[in-house]
């Protein structure tokens, strides 16, 4: 659509600007403040420069949390994106069954995050949970509070359960927008199923898939509640992701300086990666529009 230049449009944006400034800029400035200051209590602060930043960059704890976080995000993206596309391809196209599938699939997305944790905590327990009990009876040792591998498997399967539907719904929306003529043309050309997917469906889904990957990346990178409820970051520190570590540091130990420096670097990493995604996405939109 042709947009006209109109500087008065700023007035329409103003309420959002004021609100977001209040709820984002002020808190963020507090964080920046803490990150360059030191305190010995009594509300007396001293300039500390970049001390906290260099301390955090040297700390093994942060690098470990960051690498766990990257591994986690990579694994869940590698599972959820292909699985979501696969599910979307198999969804009924219209009618009662399509509506039913949509509603049931969206259900996990609306479960409060701590309840997601509770559900899997109950589901996975060896004594009372269906999953834990069954695995135990088959003879597979499974205990997500003790065993490193079981804890990771539980957290990953939980996230797949929780969020694959998001990718599937997005891919489904993309598939629905493909005009029928494309399929008919493919049929005349006797294109194989694989070719239809590769040259028609995948390119047409590109836009929504970028949104899906962007959302999944952002949200998995700041995951807190679900693993916190299920494993509490354990056993040991094996499922302590960035947010869990940060909350421990800021609200648990009240290490304001390091926590603030940590926060800023955490935010910058997310910002950087999201900016790359966003640029790719808007370029795609432009190319489609042209």
């Amino acid at each position: 659509m042709e947009k006209t230049v109109n500087q008065k449009a700023w007035f329409l944006v103003l309420p959002v600007l004021v609100l977001v400034a209040f709820s984002a800029v002020i808190p963020l400035m507090t964080v920046v403040n803490y990150s360059v200051q030191d305190t010995f209590g009594n509300n007396e602060f001293y300039w500390a420069g970049l001390e906290w930043f260099s301390e955090m960059l040297d700390s093994e704890r942060m690098w470990n949390a960051l690498s766990r976080q990257l591994v986690f995000s990579a694994i869940i993206l590698a599972i959820e994106v292909p699985l979501g596309i696969f599910v979307a391809l198999n969804m009924p196209k219209k009618g009662f069954w399509a509506s039913l599938c949509l509603v049931l699939m969206a259900l996990p997305l609306l479960v409060p995050w701590n309840v997601v944790g509770t559900i899997w905590q109950i589901f996975g327990r060896v004594d009372i949970g269906l999953l834990g009990y069954t695995l135990d009876k088959i003879g597979i040792p499974y205990n997500y509070t003790q065993d490193f591998f079981a804890a990771w498997a539980t957290v990953i399967i939980m996230d797949v359960w929780h969020w694959t539907s998001l990718v599937a719904l997005l891919a489904y929306a993309g598939l629905q927008s493909i005009p029928d003529a494309y399929y008919q043309a493919a049929k005349i050309d006797q294109a194989s199923r694989l070719a239809v997917f590769r040259f028609i469906e995948l390119p047409k889904m590109q836009g929504v898939l970028m949104i899906a990957i962007l959302l999944r990346f952002m949200d998995s990178f700041m995951i807190y509640t679900e693993p916190f409820v299920v494993t509490g970051g354990g056993p040991g520190n094996s499922t302590t992701f960035l947010s869990i570590d940060l909350v421990k540091m800021a609200l648990g130990q009240f290490d304001l300086g390091p926590a603030a420096a940590f926060s800023i670097m955490y935010f910058l990493v997310i910002l950087l990666i999201s900016w790359v995604f966003y640029t790719v996405m808007t370029n795609l939109e432009k190319r489609e529009g042209a």
Partner: peptide
């Protein structure tokens, strides 16, 4: 409309969607 800084403003708004709540909890 197009207006001064509209693209930057839009991205800045989105960055708030990307901000981890854990960062904001204490402030």
């Amino acid at each position: 409309y197009h207006f001064m800084g509209d693209k930057h403003l839009f991205f800045w708004l989105l960055t708030n969607r990307m901000a981890p709540p854990a960062v904001f909890a204490l402030p």
